[in-house]
Design a binder for these strands. Structure first.
Lengths: 191, 191
DNA sequence: ACCTGAACACCGTTCAAGT
DNA sequence: ACCTGAACACCGTTCAAGT
């Protein structure tokens, strides 16, 4: 038997679309451009994703799932909150290092008012997932702190890291990201 | 003599465009929509702003100028770094309170790869202006700190506040902004 | 099951033409 | 000086038609 070499068009579209959104945002996503990249016609893209909103929601959903899986792995690997936070910050750094890309959900948050409802829902879930994980990490580092304070601090860390990525990207200078994360650590915002 | 009642179309276009960009981003800006809003044809908008890039750059330039003027006023009004930071955070809060809008340059940073060069230049200037002001404020609060550290911390504060705005906006919950800023203060990131 | 061409109302931009 | 209609190549979406 031959291996399954036939390109899965649905996958090819999602891969191309993910790169475009992380670089140029949801609004810049074009079914015609996407079609050209994967070698089909734009009408065929609609066969896999009836609307642009369906594609955007599928992208965000998978992005959250893959992120959650990786974060769960981190959590299982080490009990050291500081090491986990290091790895966490490294994820957002990797996007910048990869052609100045941005967190898929961060860039989509900026475009919020142009997002179909189903895409917004997925963006929300991504934030929830991140804050949930950060709360767990914080509860290890500061076990005596109340759940409410923990969650607020987790949200603050998530926002601060998204912001560091946004600003460093705007300045096309990954050094800004590194120095900003260092400053967050120095002040004690990040364990 | 009559007062000058004739609507300045250039101004009307900029006002409408500013609101659109702060809500939906640069990509969502449409010359045809803009034209309808101010009551002329889209070809006439091109008379005032030859390209979309010209309009975007004009918007960002004015945004920076107006921001700089307001921040200079704050600096002259009080010597209290903590009070100044309070007012600073209030500026970004006001955008959220005003129909969940975002910092013009923050939203444009997210769309960076789709921005014409002249718009990028203005986005850079906005960040520089903010970091410069924050550095001055910090030098008051921590006079013994070196210039380099001061600038890094100023950049971190700018990034953290932009991030708080981005995430709160994404969640359509201004309370997230307030709690996040509070957490920044508690940890000592913000004076 | 998957793809296509053609049509629709949109987009930024250009340009010759109007006042 | 300021505005316009018409044209161009783009866009997402729909749909009847092909295999």
């Amino acid at each position: 038997m031959m291996a399954k070499t036939k390109t899965d068009m649905r996958e090819a579209v999602m891969t191309a679309a993910k790169a475009t959104v992380q670089s140029r945002g949801y609004n810049a996503l074009s079914f015609r451009e996407l079609a050209k990249e994967v070698g089909i016609k734009s009408a065929s893209v609609h066969y896999h994703f009836p609307t642009k909103g369906d594609l955007g929601a599928a992208l965000a959903r998978r992005y959250t799932e893959e992120g959650a899986a990786y974060l769960a792995e981190l959590l299982a690997t080490s009990n050291d909150a500081s090491w986990c936070m290091d790895r966490y910050a490294a994820i957002f750094r990797a996007a910048l290092a990869n052609d100045n890309r941005m967190c898929l959900c961060g860039i989509m948050s900026a475009e919020l008012d142009d997002l179909p409802a189903e895409v917004r829902t997925e963006v929300d879930r991504f934030a929830e997932m991140n804050v949930g994980w950060l709360t767990q990490i914080l509860s290890r580092a500061r076990p005596s702190t109340g759940e409410q304070d923990l969650q607020e601090c987790a949200m603050a860390i998530f926002a601060a890291i998204e912001g560091a990525q946004l600003v460093a990207r705007g300045c096309r200078d990954i050094g800004i990201y590194d120095r900003t994360i260092r400053a967050y650590r120095t002040t004690g915002l990040i364990p």
